[in-house]
Design a protein around this nucleic acid. Structure first.
Lengths: 241, 241
DNA sequence: TGAACGCTTCGGCGGGGACCGAAAGGTTGC
DNA sequence: GCAACCTTTCGGTCCCCGCCGAAGCGTTCA
């Protein structure tokens, strides 16, 4: 071992440091977390959100786009940016999940608490559902034998049939995994992500099972949604509040 | 949206930036990648490995330990450090997996190639098996209906029985998932990680199905291992070279 | 006990990067 | 065409941090 100490450095090292460096700034980290809602933000929105000058935000966005974490779309005088893909979203989630523990409790204002409780009830997490709503769906799928969590995280054959009979199409052609466990920030437990999670979220919004609250990430279940979730997954409406 | 622009910043932002900052230095990134072999290194070994002064390495290790990514163990005049746990290993792997694509090809010396091919054949990845060996095992488990990859990543009931009958105990009490997909650097495909992957690796080393080459991460399959893998999983010996 | 060794602390140096304001380039709408 | 708007580029400042060598502390071994 001592003789081979001068071995060539792992070429991944610099790349890893560069990738981490993109997220190692508080402002850029704030951008990425904001963009976790899966939607496109303009440069100005992000600048105001993070409390920095537009010129500063512009420089940060340039780095994030060049680094492949964001994609941009120019429309007239606006520059819309969004997370490059689901893999980037997952990466940010994974990092963020690692952060939570030390955060612990902290003083909350009333406004924060109420906004927080709406978020805690139900929200989108990139392209799937999270919060108590996401957990309730994941638990129901598991309890009905449609999703297996005890030996990993995968849909069962019955689960495949359920999606089919519910009219929720699953695109299994891409390289993205069908299911994936995403650690829920508020519930501290995994909820359904991946292609299946995205399809379920998309269908729930399309079918008005839940609707976005304002233009925020938070969503709330409609009465129609309560009926659908009860009928299809045996979820009691009280579990959604 | 415009009115709520002054919303309180996500408290995760600073934490995320700090965590990423720990990996955003080339030297520290090199440390973490080296430590991905799952073993304990001394401060001096890491310093020589990365090509920095001992004092510099000491400062880096202090940050990594304080940040919770490493744990240390003092023995006499030595300071041994290792990755704090499997979650940290996973985090580093995930980041590194995101880096590979842009790396592309580059000139290789003969020494690198031969060392590389031994690593490519089989190696440990923190506490489980990777390289062609890891892929062969994962594929065989999948082909035999013991591991399900098409709808996620989970052991089947038959898979649970296989581990039991092979005498490989699975500790299912911890919070660590039983199975997890870990993207293989050289094969670009997922191999088995998690509690089951660690148990399989541990058993393979204990039973001398494979042995470490020198004190490196690379491992090679023994003739006894070839027999065991053929009998238990139907793997042809040629798939292991 | 003294010498060799591994690690840490400290002072100092140098480079990189985050930030802003001012000015300029495009786009939209009156 | 002109004004309002969003964004970008540029110059300049400041601070943080990675690096080293020297000195000091504790351990090991002769």
């Amino acid at each position: 071992m001592l003789g081979s100490m001068t071995r060539p450095k792992d070429p991944v090292g610099p790349g890893l440091a560069a990738l981490a460096g993109l997220m190692a700034d508080e402002t850029r980290a704030g951008f990425l977390l904001a963009l976790l809602d899966g939607r496109a933000w303009t440069a100005g929105e992000l600048a105001r959100y993070a409390g920095v000058a537009p010129s500063t935000a512009s420089e940060h966005l340039g780095k994030l786009v060049t680094g492949g974490l964001l994609t941009e779309e120019r429309q007239g005088r606006h520059r819309y940016v969004r997370l490059a893909d689901a893999r980037v979203a997952q990466l940010v989630e994974d990092l963020a999940a690692h952060v939570r523990p030390p955060a612990a409790e902290r003083p909350r204002t009333l406004r924060e608490s109420s906004a927080g409780s709406a978020m805690a009830r139900g929200r989108t997490c990139y392209d799937h559902l999270a919060g108590r709503l996401g957990i309730a769906l994941t638990d129901a799928l598991t309890g009905q034998g449609l999703l297996r969590q005890d030996t990993g995280f995968a849909l069962t054959d019955a689960g495949l049939r359920w999606f089919d009979s519910a009219g929720i199409g699953l695109d299994r052609t891409g390289r993205r995994p069908l299911t994936r466990a995403c650690l829920d920030w508020t519930e501290r437990r995994p909820h359904l992500a991946g292609t299946a999670g995205a399809a379920l979220c998309r269908h729930a919004l399309d079918a008005q099972w839940c609707v976005r609250i304002g233009s925020e990430r938070a969503v709330k279940v409609t009465s129609e949604g309560e009926r659908a979730f009860a009928e299809l997954l045996g979820i009691e409406p009280t579990a959604l509040h």
